[in-house]
Write a protein that binds this DNA or RNA. Sequence first.
DNA 1: CCCCAGTCCTGCGGGC
DNA 2: TGCCCGCAGGACTGGG
Length: 277
Amino acid sequence: MPELPEVETMRRTVREVEGQRVLQVRWVRSRFRPLVVRPHRAAICRTLPGRKIQQVRRRGKYLVLVFDDRSALAFHPRMTGLVLVEDPPDWEHLRLELRLQGPGPRVLRFWDRRGLGTLELFAPGTWETQLAQGRLGPDALTISLGELRRRVGHLRAPVKVALMDQQRLAGVGNLYASEVLFQARVPPTLPCCRLEPHHWRRIHRALRTVLEEAIRYEGSTLADGTYRNALNRPGSYQNHHRVYGRAGQPCPRCKTPICRIVQAQRSTFFCPQCQKV
DNA sequence: CCCCAGTCCTGCGGGC
DNA sequence: TGCCCGCAGGACTGGG
C-alpha cells in the first residue's frame, strides 16, 4: 500500500538518520521467507559498515539511503513494508536492522509483514541512472503536463491503469489513482488516447493537489492498520478519501452512490455522475 | 510496443 | 470452534 505520500512521509520521519554512520548490518531470521535482496546480502554486509548516510531520498515508491561514497541502498516497501527508527508493530516480521552511530537514532529497521518488499544496493554513483532514470518514470509529484501527456497520452489502456505504470510515471498506486481521477472528474475506464487536453490539465493538477494533500495528512493508514511512518505513527488521510473504499456511500460532491469496478484485477472506485466524459 | 492473466506473500474476515 | 476460501495489490513474468 505505501504509495508516494506514504513513502514521502517515511522519508521525512527517517531523515534524522542523515549524518549517522552504519555500524553493523543485522539480518533477522524468522519462519517467513527471507527478504529479497539485490544483488545479494554479502554485498550489503561488505559495503555498509563504516559508511555515513549522506541523504535520505525518495523516488516514486522507493526510499533511498545515499552514502558518503555515493553508493545507495533502496528500500521498496511494496504492500506492507515499513522503514522505522522506532519499535516495529511486532518483532516476528522484522527483516533487517542497521545499527547506527552518531547523535541520532541507534537503529534503522525494515519490517514487512507480507514479505513482498525488496532491498537493493547500488554501486557508487549509479542509483540515479539505474533506478530513477532507468526503471522509473518521472516522479508523479513533479512531472510536467507535457511529459505526462507524452508518456501516457497515446495509450489505449484505461487511464486509471496507465497512471499506475511506474515506468511511465512513478508513485501512483491503486488508492491514489482512484482519488486523483475523482478530483480530476475523469472516468477511470476512458482510454488515454481518447482524453482531451482539458482532461490532462485536470489530471496533472489533481496529481499535485491530491498527493500534496495526502502528504500533509501523513499518508493513509487503512483498516488493517499496517502503514506507519518511521516514528511508528499512522497517517490520517484515510479520513479524507473521497472515493477509495467507499462503494455504495454518497459521493461527497453530488451524493450519487460511489461505484466499485475491477480493472486489471484491482478495485477502482469512482462517482458515475461526476466522472463523465 | 502493447496488453492481459498469473504469480509471489501473509493476515483477515465471511461462510458453514 | 475450526477450516476453507477469497481478497487485499505492486511489480514482475510469460504469452499472444
